[in-house]
Design a protein around this nucleic acid. Structure first.
Lengths: 341, 341
DNA sequence: TAATCTGTTGCAAACGTTTGCCGAATGGAG
DNA sequence: CTCCATTCGGCAAACGTTTGCAACAGATTA
């Protein structure tokens, strides 16, 4: 049914190997022959069968991209960037969603392993050991998690969390809440560590609430607990939760940032659209996707290597304002500017 | 390097065909032999090579999903639903992004054709003829566009647009704007047609502004033009544009819905989070994704068939309010409820 | 003139499966 | 004890490519 290399060979009066070479090693075939073959191939609508090619070359020209939740707005820009970048290099991308489930994650990697030249593992929830093991089955690049010895692209959320907490401290907040993310998330641990350290250094309190599924609903559901802590500022694991919290607080008549300041992480497209506009830590997700593809596809001796850290940026908008302990001298020009905005 | 069927055969002392049958036709092999083979396969970490299998069976167990823009929040829920549904049926999904470019779209279908058992084409921008032609190369299910003779899953945006316009008319608006979507979009034509017909029937004006790229920025950029028309209500091609417009109007000091009412389409996750919360037409994207997968994978004589229309729902929130011509008698209970909300 | 090289092509094996066909073994019926 | 049916497993071809090897022609070199 489908037109194969053999049909083209017959129609142009050459051996199939010549047709094959016309496509995969053009310099080895006489220009005249080549153009003849190309012409008949075009005319017949021939397209090389990648599966057959993969079988013999061992290279599928496919990559896998495994994310926790496609519908989480953090991922689409990353997926898009990775896919576009991969396609530019003539690779196709399998996208799969684990629903935050480490078991599904494991299955998925194994199922995809034979079908791809490598896998991009986004924010994996598996244990380090499991990932280590999987690495032997298929080239892996991990995104958003640092594991010694494993190639990775991470965004420096530690830095982001530090900046965010420092921003809150500068505003005069002394009791903060970290609204934690899902169990098993490296990002979550990083944020928690950095936020804790920064708060501690300044002699401020940091209460951790969680773990939580990183969705809007849990952010909203946490409002009660947040208020009960008596904290005046909240750093959320991601914008989704921050926005959920924002909503729930306002529904309860709590003013943001008047009574409680809220900071998110990710800078998803909509964090600038909610009211008040969300102060958040911007993550370079597109760049991360591209970097990960590059790393995976790098002409490898044996597999991808290296660890890349991308910088994050605190974006100050309107969901953060002065806290209860703003010292007279601290209301300097910079902070004043934030407050005013 | 990778463990093949042959390794398993050798290790368990049977012929490779027996191993093959153990996996693809278990009932043909002695339970005892089967469990022995299964055991060694497990121990060796054997996984069937799908490419090789595809070569001989002609079924890849992959499908392609082509969308205009992964980062457009309309698509991720659809992608997620389709992927999850496909995986449940043991299919993997290639996801690709055309960036709204019909050329890329065409290339993509052809490139993917040999590698998949079928392709889901979301909101294609190609011409009907082109799609018709492609259908001969690979089984196709079109989402969000109706083409005679082609299997499709569409959401009834015509109905949605009618409901939306009727809602605005009921509120007393007599001059409406339709902020159009991209050229080549079937959805766009449907909305325009239905909105126009509904307005015309009621003797109201409908000004069409566009075509536009379906992103937030163009919605914002259109604010000026919208105001210039003097219309009191706007229906946007999608929520993204509606939200952009909302923002821009408010930035100009125009009250929504006080001075201008705005209705979106899609009900993306964030339309309920902006202020005012957006009145919009909800599209069952998840259901559409699943239906399309089912249609594509239906045990087919020759290819998928049928056309499914999924119903849409007008969700009334706070971005719509009474218009300048609200007749005394029209402020019935239902409308009053809307207004109050 | 013989030897060597270069460029172009054909030949055939290989990649990891599936599957139609055939033969061997087993067991039940007559 | 023979015959037949059934169950099981092996054999080998096939899927559409790539690629090392060899053959051949013509050109270059010695």
């Amino acid at each position: 049914m489908a037109v194969t290399i053999r049909d083209v060979a017959r129609a142009s009066g050459v051996h199939i190997s010549t047709v094959s070479r016309t496509f995969s090693a053009p310099h080895l075939v006489n220009p005249e022959t080549r153009s003849r073959v190309l012409a008949t191939a075009e005319q017949l609508g021939y397209r090389p069968n990648r599966a057959a090619r993969a079988l013999i070359t061992g290279r599928t020209h496919n990559i896998g991209l495994i994310v926790a939740d496609i519908a989480n707005p953090f991922f689409p820009p990353l997926i898009k960037a990775a896919e576009t970048h991969a396609r530019r290099r003539d690779y196709h991308v399998f996208v799969a969603d684990t629903d935050e489930d480490p078991i599904v994650e494991l299955d998925l990697v194994q199922a995809l392993a034979k079908q791809v030249d490598g896998i991009l593992l986004c924010s994996p929830r598996m244990s380090d050991d499991q990932i280590e093991l999987l690495k032997r089955e298929v080239p892996l690049v991990v995104i958003n998690r640092l594991i010694t010895g494993l190639p990775a692209v991470v965004m420096d959320v530690g830095l982001g969390a530090r900046d965010a907490v420092q921003h809150l401290l500068d505003l005069g907040h002394r009791h903060l809440v970290y609204l934690a993310g899902p169990r098993g998330s490296w990002t979550n641990r990083e944020i928690r560590r950095a936020a804790g350290a920064t708060a501690r250094t300044a002699g401020a309190d940091l209460t951790v609430l969680g773990p939580n599924q990183p969705v809007e609903e849990t952010g909203a559901a946490a409002a009660e607990a947040v208020l009960k802590t008596g904290a005046s500022a909240v750093l959320a694991y991601n914008d989704l939760m921050a926005i959920g919290l924002l909503q729930a607080l306002q529904d309860r008549g709590v003013e943001v940032p008047g009574q409680v300041s809220v900071v998110g992480i990710d800078d998803i497209a909509y964090s600038g659209l909610v009211r008040p506009r969300l102060t958040t830590v911007a993550n370079p997700t597109g760049a991360a996707g591209r970097a990960a593809v590059d790393m995976l596809l790098q002409q490898g001796d044996d597999g991808p290597t290296g660890q890349v850290t991308l910088r994050t940026d605190l974006i100050i908008r309107n969901s953060t304002g002065p806290g209860p302990y703003v010292p007279a001298g601290a209301l300097n020009a910079e902070v004043a500017a934030h407050v005013k905005e």
